[in-house]
Simulated scan of single mutants.
Amino acid sequence: MPVVKILLEITKNLYDHVSAGLPKEERESYIERLNELLDQRQVTINSLPATYSEDEQRMGRLIVKMNETIDPLLTRQFEEIKHNLSTMKKKKEKNTQYANPYQSVSVDGMYFDKKN
C-alpha cells in the first residue's frame, strides 16, 4: 500500500475522531487515541517519498483539505482542556482555603508598625 494512501487513512481517522468533539466524560481515552493517531501520522509523514504520482497528489490535496479542518478543531479542544484545568486548579485552591481559612494567618500575634 502506498505511503500516501496510508497517510490519507490515518488523516481520515483523525478527522473523524476530532470532528466527534471533546467528550464530557472519558477524556483520557479520547486524548490517548488522539495522541496515538498524531504519532502514527507523524511517522507516516516522515516516510513520505520525494516524488508523487498524480493519484498520490490528488490524495495529498484531500489530506491538506482535511487538515485545514483538523487544525482549528484541535486548537479549540486544546484551549477548552486548558480552561478546564485552570478552573479545576482554582476550585481546588478555593476548597483548600475554605477547609482551612486560617492557614496563612500569623500565629504569634505580632504587629509591626511601618512608620519610622
Rank of each mutant, 00 (worst) to 15 (best):
R61E: 07
K114T: 11
T75M: 13
R33G: 00
F112L: 15
G21F: 04
H17K: 08
S104Y: 11
E26V: 00
N35M: 07
Q57E: 11
E32C: 04
G109Q: 11
Q103K: 13
S106N: 14
R61Y: 01
E93R: 10
L22H: 07
A50C: 05
L74M: 15
K92I: 14
I63P: 01
L37M: 10
K5L: 13
L74G: 08
L8N: 13
M110W: 04
A99C: 03
K91L: 11
I31D: 02
N95A: 13
S53G: 10
V107M: 12
M110P: 00
D113I: 09
N46Q: 13
R61H: 06
Y98S: 12
S104W: 05
S104P: 00
I63N: 01
I6W: 01
N46D: 15
R61N: 08
R33K: 15
L73W: 10
S86C: 05
R33D: 01
D16V: 05
M88W: 05
K115A: 11
T51C: 04
F112R: 15
Y102A: 11
L73P: 05
N67Y: 05
E32H: 12
I6N: 07
V3I: 15
V4D: 01
S86K: 15
M88D: 14
R41I: 00
Y30P: 02
S53K: 04
L74S: 08
V4S: 03
S19P: 00
M110L: 13
K115R: 15
R27P: 03
Q103G: 06
S19A: 11
L48M: 15
K89C: 09
L38S: 07
V18I: 15
E9T: 15
K82Q: 14
L48Q: 12
N95T: 09
K114M: 08
E36D: 10
Y30E: 02
R76S: 11
N67G: 09
Y30W: 14
M66I: 04
V3W: 02
R61C: 01
L14W: 04
Y30Q: 02
K114Q: 08
Y98H: 07
R27S: 03
V43C: 04
L34V: 01
P72Y: 13
G21V: 06
L14R: 04
N116Q: 09
E54W: 02
E54S: 05
R76N: 09
V64T: 09
Q57I: 08
L38R: 06
E25M: 04
E25G: 00
D55I: 07
Y102F: 12
L38K: 07
P23R: 06
L7F: 10
E80Y: 06
E26I: 00
Y15H: 14
Q103S: 12
V43I: 12
E93W: 00
K90S: 11
